[in-house]
Design a binder for these strands. Structure first.
Lengths: 216, 216
DNA sequence: TAGATTGTTAATCGATTAACAATC
DNA sequence: TAGATTGTTAATCGATTAACAATC
C-alpha cells in the first residue's frame, strides 16, 4: 500500500462533512451544491470542492452532490465500517466516559478489551466488557491482534506500554495521555489533550475582544 | 482591547511548550537552547524562536532560554493563573470525567457550578459541587457571572442553551457537543469532538502504510 | 439550448523553514 | 575576545481561495 497523498487538514475535515451530510439526509435533503453546503458549514465552496476532489469526482456539473451518495462515499473513505479491533487501557473516570460515550461501531471500531492495573477494578465490567489485568495485555494482543489502543492512563504508564503495544502489532493510538509518540514510532496517533485544549481556551478568554472570536 | 495578533497555530502550541518546560524544570534543567528544545519536541528551532517572538524576546543570545523564566512567561501568556469562572452543563459520564479529570485551577479556571436536567442527578454532588437544575441557569449566571461554559450535553440541548448563555455574558465555550457555534456568535470556542477525532484515526488506520505515520 | 455547478488550474495567502546579522 | 545562540528578515512551502473552462 502506498503513502496517503491527502493532506492532514483535509482528512480532519472529513468527519465534519460526514456529520453535516448525515444531518442533511435526516432532514430529507437529496441534493446540495458546494455553495449551499459551504454556507451551512462556514467554509468556502472552493474548499469543499477541492477537499472532495482529493478522493474522486462525487458531484455532477449543473446539479451538485447527491447527499446520500456523498455521505456513503465519505463513510467508506473514513472506514467507518471497518470494525478495527481496539482495546482501552485505563478504567478510570476518563476511560469509563469514553467507553460509555462513544459508539465504537459507528466510528469504525470494535472495542474488544479493557485493561487496568487496579485490583479493585479488575474483574468488574464496563459497558459490558470485563476489565482485565494490564499484565495480561501482551498475551491478549498476540491472541486477539487489536490494531488500536486507547490510552486513558497517565503519561508514565503510557510511556511504558506504548513500545510493548507497538511490538505487539498495534498500529493506531487514541491518546488521551500526555505521552508523546516519536515520529519514528511509525504508528498513527490521534492526540486528545484535554488540558491543552482548556489552556488554549484560557488564552482566548484572556485575550478576548470584540473582533477576535472563534478561529479554529 | 485590540485584536489578538498571534495566529491560531502558534497559540495551540503554547500549552505543549508549557508542558515540556515544566518537565525540564522538574528535571532540574536551568537553561535550554531552541535547538535542544526543538529536538526534544520534534519541531524546528526556527519555529520555536518564531513562536516565542510573537510574545517577546525571552532568550539571550549565546545562552538560550532560562527554563523557569520562559515557563512562567508562557504561563502568564496563557492566563493559567486567571481563575476564569466556569460552569459545566451535563452531569453524565462525560461531564463527570471532565470534572474529575481536569485540574481547573491549574488550567486557568475555577469551576463554580454544575447543571443538569435529570431529576435523579439534581441535588447530588460531583467533585464536591452540587448539581443544580438547568432551569436555574440564567439566574445563576446573572448572579455569579461565569465567563466560560463547558458543554457536556447533546447537540440539541447545546443549541438551546448557547444563545441564552451568550446573552448572559458567557464569552467562552469548551464544547464537547456537536453543536456548531456560528462565527457571528462572537465567542471563543474550543471544540473537543471526540467522535471526529476517532474517525480521523480510523482513516489513518485504514490508509496505514510504512511511511505514512503520525502527522498532526 | 441555457443555466447551473462541478472539476481543475492559477493566484493568493499564510505558515514554516532557512539564513544571518546582532549580541550576549 | 571567540563561540554560541538569539531575534528577525528573506525564501520556501503548503493550504486556501479565486477563476473559469468543461459539462451535466
Amino acid at each position: 500500500m502506498s503513502k496517503s497523498l491527502v493532506s492532514s487538514p483535509v482528512i480532519k475535515r472529513l468527519p465534519r462533512y460526514y456529520r453535516f451530510l448525515g444531518d442533511l439526509e435526516s432532514q430529507g435533503i437529496v441534493r446540495i451544491s458546494s455553495r449551499e453546503l459551504s454556507q451551512r458549514m462556514g467554509l468556502t465552496a472552493s474548499q469543499i470542492r477541492q477537499d472532495l476532489n482529493c478522493f474522486g469526482g462525487f458531484g455532477q456539473q449543473g446539479y451538485g452532490y447527491n447527499v446520500s451518495e456523498l455521505r456513503e462515499a465519505i463513510r467508506d473513505i473514513l472506514g467507518v465500517n471497518a470494525g478495527n479491533k481496539a482495546i482501552l487501557i485505563g478504567a478510570g473516570n476518563l476511560g469509563r466516559a469514553v467507553t460509555a460515550h462513544i459508539d465504537f461501531p459507528k466510528r469504525g471500531f470494535e472495542l474488544i478489551g479493557i485493561f487496568d492495573s487496579d485490583p479493585d477494578k479488575i474483574g468488574k465490567t464496563m459497558s459490558g466488557i470485563s476489565i482485565s489485568n494490564v499484565n495480561t495485555l501482551e498475551e491478549f494482543c498476540s491472541k486477539n491482534e487489536p490494531v488500536c489502543a486507547i490510552f486513558c492512563i497517565p503519561k508514565d504508564a503510557a510511556a511504558k506500554l506504548a513500545p510493548k503495544l507497538i511490538a505487539s502489532g498495534v498500529k493506531g493510538f487514541w491518546n488521551f495521555s500526555h505521552y508523546d509518540f516519536k515520529p519514528d514510532d511509525d504508528v498513527v496517533v490521534e492526540n486528545v489533550h484535554l488540558a491543552d485544549s482548556l489552556m488554549t481556551l484560557a488564552y482566548g478568554l484572556n485575550n478576548y475582544s470584540e473582533d477576535s472570536a472563534e478561529k479554529k
